[in-house]
Write a protein that binds this DNA or RNA. Sequence first.
DNA 1: TCATTTGTGCGCATAAATAATCATATCCGG
DNA 2: CCGGATATGATTATTTATGCGCACAAATGA
Lengths: 273, 273
Amino acid sequence: MINSENTGLAVERHARIRKILQERKIVTVEGLCRELNVSGATIRRDLVDLDRQGRVRRVRGGAVSVGWHAEEPLFEDKAAIAAKEKQRIAEAALRYVQPKGSIFLDGGSTVLALARLLTERAGLTVVTNSLRVAGALSGAGPRVILTGGELRRLSQTFVGSMTAPLINQIHVDTAFMGTIGLSADDGLTTTDPREAFTKNIAMARARQVILLADSSKLGKVSFVKFGSLPKADVLITDTGASARDVQSFRKAGIRVVKVSGVRCRGSGKRRET
Amino acid sequence: MINSENTGLAVERHARIRKILQERKIVTVEGLCRELNVSGATIRRDLVDLDRQGRVRRVRGGAVSVGWHAEEPLFEDKAAIAAKEKQRIAEAALRYVQPKGSIFLDGGSTVLALARLLTERAGLTVVTNSLRVAGALSGAGPRVILTGGELRRLSQTFVGSMTAPLINQIHVDTAFMGTIGLSADDGLTTTDPREAFTKNIAMARARQVILLADSSKLGKVSFVKFGSLPKADVLITDTGASARDVQSFRKAGIRVVKVSGVRCRGSGKRRET
DNA sequence: TCATTTGTGCGCATAAATAATCATATCCGG
DNA sequence: CCGGATATGATTATTTATGCGCACAAATGA
């Protein structure tokens, strides 16, 4: 079981839903379903309650925070792309998180999905340069250390050389890295040089590097290179990855884990390892 | 059960339950069961009593601390306390923000209110150690530089000595500081030493220091001192400040600005829904 | 327009939590 | 030492929460 001390009280669920809704202004039933490990029916009943209390506004497919205006900029766009695969990848990555260990969490939506699964891991230490990861863990969970630096709005991460002295003070067991492009020939690539700089030094401080990249990233090449492929130990991707790509990464000495996107509706999930 | 230490008095159990509930805001019957070594029936009877006394709120599966379940008072949103005054103070502070300048923004709800007024100031540079300030400015507005460090959940700020090298790289025109206590005799005080550490070095990097403190803070003394009163140039507070306090601060060489809270109607706040 | 997908509400089964009941143990004033 | 009052734990109904399947409705797409 993932949650050793899961109280499972209904009120606690309600509180968590409200908290999630404070951060991201809009959530889907399915998303809550996965995040709270309950069925869609329960989530709907919760949302009915909260809606009756006027605490959230129920909409088809999920709920929105009260007093949210559709004109407000929303950063969820990217998170919605291949959300199922990302969620599955995040869940698979959970296996590599030691209860009392320390990890680095990169920016990017897949890694953010992993962060959201860590709100119960009180013994853990999380180092990150992502504002949204910090926000996701701001209420409860692991010790959070933010690297600081200048905010890059597009990715909601903190970048720049200022942060180097801080990162160089720390060591982590495992770094979970997202990426824009990942190819056997050109290695890891991203769009922004400052982003690459931070990724570089973060990877250097980790004993183990795990890449989280859905299959759309494979074979892609972006603007600037970071890290080095041989430095990566594990790549977690989804079944959309071509056998060819997988083969070439394995040849490079990387362990490749493929997860299949399944849904929370219907059966399953009663029996977790 | 013969428990060597356990007196078995019901009132003692009640006290312990209340204490536990103060720390963790939510408990399960089963958890209390284990912790107090009594049966579920007894715990339930206790909770019924405590609930009747209004000391805890009973929910299915356990109980929550009163005032947590957010009957009315919401999460840690201290921002609601004296919100009008804080808003006024923030608006007054806006005068001291140069369009192209650089400022430091402390944690604290008054300073957060100021941050929310800066979302249009594209030319500005804001340095902060507050997660919520960074969140408020994450969408648009000034350049945001976060100091980093370890997250202190209570205040949602990043603290610790790690951040020192980063802060020492920068200079700002003006630092806007909140505080828990502010007295002519004991200076500036706050609750947490690590918080004080960050405030200290931040103030040292500013050409000008402006204190934002509603009148409830005046004359108060908290746990640990930070900065030094003479280092402050301006204090912005509300008209609730006593003439004596204001006088003593002016005597210390601080310019004091008083803003009027919008107290049109008499204090009677009986007009709830 | 129709077909398909996706979300929703309802009924039922099951598990869990609570309430009700009873038996036993402890305490305390005669 | 006795008998009642109280508290606790065990046992049992009863209520409630949850998950799941199904039929239907609303969005989506051709």
